[in-house]
Design a protein around this nucleic acid. Structure first.
Length: 928
RNA sequence: GCCGGGAUGGCGGAAUCGGUAGACGCAGCGGAUUCAAAAUCCGCCGCUGGAAACAGUGUGGGGGUUCGAGUCCCCCUCCCGGCACCA
């Protein structure tokens, strides 16, 4: 028998006794088995407790888990477990964003069917997720590639089609002329197809669109109803929706007064400064002018080269060419030329813009480059207009007034726009208009591995939605992916069908949906994954999601589309009004300050929560059926150092950090690195997002295998706050593991020594009293960090500090009891982050009970009181000393004590202070 | 290009509402233990000067507001995320 006691299992399936050595694999297996056998995380609709729906963005099943997943899911799990301990009925589900491009790429690379590849990946990754010990209700797992899931997506599509919220129009895509296929933006590299290397062209094809613009106003306005979202994300969405107030008006074509060229502008006040009009290369006027102008035709062709990604287009050099056409200025009657500009986007607004070079920076540079006139029509006091260079104020609508603008001279922005809009309206050539930057959502994809669009094209009946009884349109799984064309369009067995209306032979749509569609409603399906309708009454119980956790990269598209879908489903009556809205987490229990509870509360006393609470205000209040995610946490990336050598072919050969040794100088600064294999130097690159291309990924599996899931979870939570990027560090992992070993030893030693009473009794000597105050401050701090701040690194740090203090606690009659209280508390506080080891420690501290059944600890207000506090003394804002005063000391006493300090006497040198600032509980600043 | 962020010791980070900059951890240095090493434990640790006490200085760069600025305002640099077909 080795020293210590061998671990045995009790009736809970947990440890009856602790062994001396911290053995993560044993502990984690036992804890996970116990949770699984007791179905500990099954979410129930019939609970009397308030509900808390905690959701992490589901993964794409790419093959194996990466560190970003570990981080994402640990954050979600910490919040879920914290709320579980706070007395909530928690739903934390998991599933798979299973459709998408990588499965088709894998199919080509490895000659494996996308379905088979995807399901194999899911099986592997599910095992990896389970090894992390997440408090997930696995009985609700969904995969979006299953017909049982996408059937309802197709069903909603047909409903929206009937309502006119889905329509068909042409859109521009990246076309690879060699592979004869449409490319995703990421498949266009430097203007060429990634596989064929062919120059990519723009091509117009018909696509289905969701009319998201119909919801633009609501999507914009309801951002104000989301106090639980980061301001940053709401700002990005506001800007993306881009509501603008402007004027839409028309120019008549010179000599063809019935032919109108419409433009939209937010700067109608500068209309008298228009010196040309620019249209997109795809604009009908451009095509018309190019018909008998070979040079222009060549330019239009040039504009059609390259991809459609807006980031690339915006970075292009601004180019243009005169069409030779002229239009008549609606107010001045002057003729202005029409140009084709490569910077004008056909898909945005009218595909044409009025150009005012004097007051638009882009137009200014364009006019200078092509020698077009620049006419100043706005003047600002104290500023001089010069054609030499662009100045900020030229484009500032808050400054100045109209000049050189005839009857509008002297009018400021608003008055000028009003007058000009009124005049255009009188001419029947325009009016004020509110416009959105947001465009309708094109969802057609010419790909195989996606949800089939449930439409049948009939020569007589047109586009006919597939009737409900024929859904789902099942995606055939036995296909060969070649990378050329669309696989479904080559399968007559798939597309040959009869028209549901007239019965004549018809052709089934062979495009599939954007995978963003599946991810736009999965959060709702988790409420009722087995329902034989899109959503059932369980959605009313669980929605909205109380806490959503995921990467900041989804700030706009995914989160906007999900908000849109939520409103679509609401308007379809899938949840909301007619259902009873109940089971809301109305536990109002806002954090209440301890400060007010005692007259002599310490300076650093923190809020104490009452049970149950989620700790954030946004979670309370009436349940909204308008928004899917009440609180949002956006997590940063996981990054790691990179190392490389210059290969013989001139390309960099990237080396994995695990294979490299870094050497440091005597201060620990890195001075060089060598490859472990050959001891020869390598180049230290930058710190970058973990990726295959830079070979700087660290496999979470290795981490879990060698240290255990708890160490992985602890490192992830401790290394950085959730919203910042997290830098990978092997040494940091070691440190996290060391802490768990120390914690284990502290509890083991305590239990071996006979443990202690549940709590100390009677008056404690000062060091013990101080420690107990720190203990209860830590409870308050950690509770606030988990609940309100959602910042876990500081929670861990506070517990580490407490453990450091515990190790220095003097021995007294009450010490074992105090130690018992401290260790029990620490175990509970850390349980959301490192649940397995805490479960084992708890069974050591309280044999026969299970940690999962314990309530969250509460700070004892009595333990938090202090008699005396320390205040910093500053002279002219510089730290010069400190004083100790009674906790309730008044301002006069504090000032007197501060003035009496040696530092103050020396600095003042007999003179009277000019001013004394007393910051209660913090400092005194004497202004000499 | 446009929109949104970020920058604090050798490193990750802390400082929550404008109030002691550097908590906690890593690395490093010194010591204990050991035949030795690993592990563990104790101590030191922004920079400059000083034996020390202490003084000066310091939060990407420049300016400003304030008794007091890492935090607020203006300008700039670099890095990161998104830009509608990667997810």
């Amino acid at each position: 028998m080795p020293p210590g006691i061998m671990a045995g299992f009790d009736s809970f399936g947990l440890f009856a006794a602790m062994q001396e050595r911290y053995d993560p694999s044993l502990i984690e297996r036992a804890a996970q088995q116990n949770w699984e056998q007791t179905r500990a995380f099954k979410a129930r609709e019939d609970s009397a407790k308030p509900k808390y729906y905690c959701l992490s963005m589901f993964p794409y099943p790419s093959g194996k888990l990466h560190m970003g997943h570990v981080r994402n899911y640990t954050i979600g799990d910490v919040l879920a477990r914290f709320h579980l301990m706070q007395g909530y009925s928690v739903l934390q589900p998991m599933g798979w964003d299973a459709f998408g491009l990588p499965a088709e790429n894998a199919a080509m690379a490895n000659n494996v069917a996308p379905a088979k590849w995807t399901y194999a990946n899911i099986d592997h990754m599910r095992g990896q997720l389970k090894a992390l010990g997440l408090a997930i209700d696995w009985e609700r797992e969904i995969a979006t590639c299953q017909p049982g899931y996408y059937k309802w997506e197709q069903w909603l599509f047909t409903r929206l089609f009937e309502k006119g919220l889905v329509y068909r129009k042409n859109a521009t895509v990246n076309w690879d002329p060699v592979d004869e296929t449409v490319l995703a933006n990421e498949q266009v590299i430097d203007g060429r197809g990634w596989r064929s290397g062919a120059l990519v062209e723009k091509r117009e094809i018909p696509m289905y669109f969701f009319r998201i613009t119909q919801y633009a106003e609501e999507l914009l306005n309801e951002l104000d109803q989301l106090p639980g979202w980061p301001e940053q994300v709401k700002t990005m969405q506001r800007n993306w929706i881009g509501k603008s107030y402007g004027v839409r008006f028309a120019f008549r074509l010179a000599g063809e007064p019935d032919n109108l060229l419409w433009v939209y502008t937010t700067r109608a006040d500068t209309i008298m400064g228009v010196s040309f009009v620019a249209v997109a290369a795809e604009h009908p006027l451009a095509a018309r002018a190019a018909a008998n102008n070979p040079a222009l035709a060549a330019f239009v062709e040039e504009c059609k080269r390259g991809g459609v990604a807006e980031a690339d287009l915006a970075a292009l050099e601004k180019k243009g060419m005169d069409t030779g056409l002229k239009v008549v200025h609606p107010l001045s009657g002057e003729e202005v030329p029409v140009w084709v500009g490569n910077y004008v986007l056909m898909g945005y607004g009218e595909g044409a813009v009025m150009a005012v070079p004097a007051h638009d920076e882009r137009d200014f540079h364009f006019a200078k480059a092509y020698g077009l006139p620049i006419r100043q029509v706005i003047a600002a006091a104290g500023e001089e207009f010069s054609l030499d260079a662009w100045q900020e104020w030229y484009g500032d609508k808050t400054r100045g007034a109209c000049v050189n603008s005839g009857k509008y001279d002297g009018l400021a922005y608003e008055a000028a726009v009003d007058a000009i809009a009124a005049d255009l309206k009188a001419l029947n050539l325009g009016d004020k208009q509110v416009q959105f930057r947001l465009r309708d959502w094109g969802i057609s994809r010419q790909r195989y591995w996606g949800c089939p669009i449930p439409i049948i094209h009939c020569e007589s009946c047109g586009d006919v939605p597939v009737p409900e009884q024929d859904l789902p349109v099942v995606l055939p799984e036995d296909v060969t992916i070649t990378g050329r064309g669309s696989p479904l369009a080559k399968m007559p067995a798939f597309y040959e069908c009869a028209c549901p209306k007239c019965g004549k032979p018809a052709r089934r749509e062979t495009d599939t949906m954007d995978t963003f569609v599946e991810s736009s409603w999965y959060y709702a399906r988790y409420a009722c994954p087995d329902a034989d309708q899109m959503l059932d009454e369980r959605a009313n119980h669980w929605l909205p999601v109380d806490q959503y956790v995921g990467g900041i990269e989804h700030a706009i598209l995914h989160l906007l589309y999900s908000r849109f879908f939520h409103k679509l489903m609401r308007d379809e009556g899938l949840f909301g009004a007619e259902h009873v809205v109940q089971g809301r987490a109305t536990a109002s229990a806002q954090s209440s300050s301890v400060k007010g509870e005692g007259a002599n509360a310490g300076p650093k006393s923190l809020p104490t929560p009452t049970l149950p609470t989620s700790g954030e205000g946004a979670n309370a209040g009436p349940k909204s059926i308008n928004e899917p995610f009440t609180n949002l946490l956006t997590q940063g990336m996981v990054v790691a150092p990179t190392f490389y050598r210059d290969g013989a072919d001139g390309k960099k050969q990237w080396l994995n950090p695990a294979d490299v040794d870094v050497t440091t100088d005597e201060r620990g600064r890195p001075v060089g690195a060598t490859l472990k294999a050959d001891g020869q130097p390598v180049v230290i690159g930058g710190t970058e997002k973990m990726s295959k291309s830079k070979n700087n990924g660290v496999d979470p599996q290795l981490l879990i295998d060698s240290y255990g899931a708890d160490t992985a979870r602890l490192f992830m939570m401790f290394a950085a706050p959730p919203d910042l990027q997290l830098e990978w560090s092997d040494a940091g992992v070691e440190g996290a593991h060391r802490f768990l070993k120390r914690l284990w030893k502290a509890v083991y030693d305590h239990v071996q020594a006979g443990g202690g009473a549940a709590a100390p009794s009677g008056e404690l000597p000062a060091p013990l009293k101080d420690f107990r105050r720190q203990l209860h401050q830590t409870i308050a701090k950690v509770t606030d960090d988990y609940g309100r701040r959602k910042q876990f690194n500081t929670a861990v740090a506070a517990v580490m500090e407490l453990m450091n203090a515990l190790a220095k606690l003097p021995e007294d009659a009450n010490t074992p009891a105090l130690r018992q209280e401290a260790l029990e508390t620490v175990t509970l506080l850390l349980a959301p982050i490192v649940p397995h080891v805490c479960e084992a420690l708890w069974s050591g501290l309280r044999p026969g009970t299970r940690l999962l059944d314990q309530a969250w600890p509460r700070a004892d207000a009595a333990a938090l009181t202090v008699d005396e506090i320390e205040l910093v003394v500053q002279i002219n804002g510089k730290l010069r000393g400190s004083i100790r005063v009674a906790a309730g000391a008044d301002k006069a006493a504090i000032e007197a004590a501060a003035l009496a300090t040696e530092a103050a006497q020396k600095q003042l040198n007999g003179a009277a202070p000019k001013k004394i600032v007393v910051v209660p509980g913090r400092l005194v600043n004497i202004v000499a």
